[in-house]
Amino acid sequence: MNRWPLWAVLTPGEPARLERRIRAALMLEEDEEDGKEPSFEIIPGSGRYHAIVGTDPGDVGAEFQIAKDLSLEVAEPVYAIERANDPWAVTSWRNGTLEVLEVSPDGLAKSLGCPLPGSEKASSRAARRPLRKVAVVEGVLAQEAIRVLEEDAGESFTSGRYRLEDTPRGLLIASGTGDIGYADITVSERFPHATAYAVIASPDLDEFYVTVRRGGEGVEEFAQPPAEFPRLPVVSEIKGERSPERILAALGIPAEWFRNE
């Protein structure tokens, strides 16, 4: 795996079974059939825990759902680490219940016997190239989205968890942490008539990815630089635009939302 891992899950389990579970969670069954290299790697640990690390910006946020699902199958906690942003987000999951941790992700991984790749350069790289995710959903209002997101989470949202704003171009979904997780997918699933545009980008927009979803399913993607192994049909423009700046303008997303605060 050549690229910098953007997310990780630390979990007990048998590596071969974990690989099958992650392929299913990331919908990579077709890649396996086509012989494509997966966008994640299982790194066996020295004890019960193993590290699952991923490099595809389009998968950022998947680590939370993966950790939640795996936590329902084991007695020990399962940990999710989101490394795309600065600061990193570290969460612990027990029986599907989330707890936010204030710990060093590398220290946690080492203590579990499964150190993360690139740990010695982690701080400088994460601070230099954080990726943030923002979405626009056409055909859905903020109050409708809040209702389904709270239903999916099983609880009311705390202030600042999501930033939802109705605009002439659609519903903007952002987060103070820079990562909206699965919010765009959840809204897309619950409102199958809507079209969702999930944008993941670096502060200077030299890494820029757009996934278009309908009914919760990805239908096409735009990537700059081009993805080595695209999982969806690739398009050369979004809303008739080809540059990141003009695509953001067409979607009504302020470019400054991707910059460090």
Rank of each mutant, 00 (worst) to 15 (best):
V235G: 01
F157G: 08
G58D: 09
A62Y: 11
L98D: 09
P192E: 02
M1V: 14
V103T: 10
E120S: 11
P203K: 02
T167F: 07
V137F: 02
G216N: 07
Q143H: 14
R129A: 10
K133W: 01
R21A: 11
R147G: 02
D69S: 15
F208N: 05
S119A: 15
P226I: 06
L171E: 00
E37K: 15
V74F: 12
A250Q: 08
I173P: 03
L205R: 00
N95T: 14
S111A: 14
Y182L: 14
N260W: 07
R20Y: 04
G35I: 12
R3M: 10
E41H: 09
S236Q: 14
L108F: 07
S159Y: 13
P12M: 08
R246D: 05
E76Q: 15
V53D: 03
N95F: 11
E41S: 09
A142K: 15
C114A: 15
L112K: 03
D206P: 09
L70I: 06
D59K: 05
F157S: 13
E151S: 09
F40Q: 11
C114W: 06
T11D: 13
L70S: 02
I22Y: 02
A62P: 04
A122V: 07
G181Q: 13
S39I: 04
G170H: 04
I43S: 04
R246F: 06
L26V: 08
I185S: 03
L98T: 07
T158A: 12
A24D: 14
F157P: 00
D179G: 13
L116N: 08
A16M: 02
D34Y: 15
Y209E: 00
L171R: 05
S243V: 10
F64L: 10
G13D: 11
A80T: 02
K36I: 04
L101K: 12
G96E: 00
P130G: 07
D59F: 09
V234L: 01
P192N: 14
G45I: 06
L26A: 03
F157A: 15
D59S: 13
D34I: 09
H193N: 07
A126E: 10
V212I: 15
E151A: 11
S175Q: 03
A67Q: 01
A183I: 08
I253M: 01
V148F: 05
G176A: 01
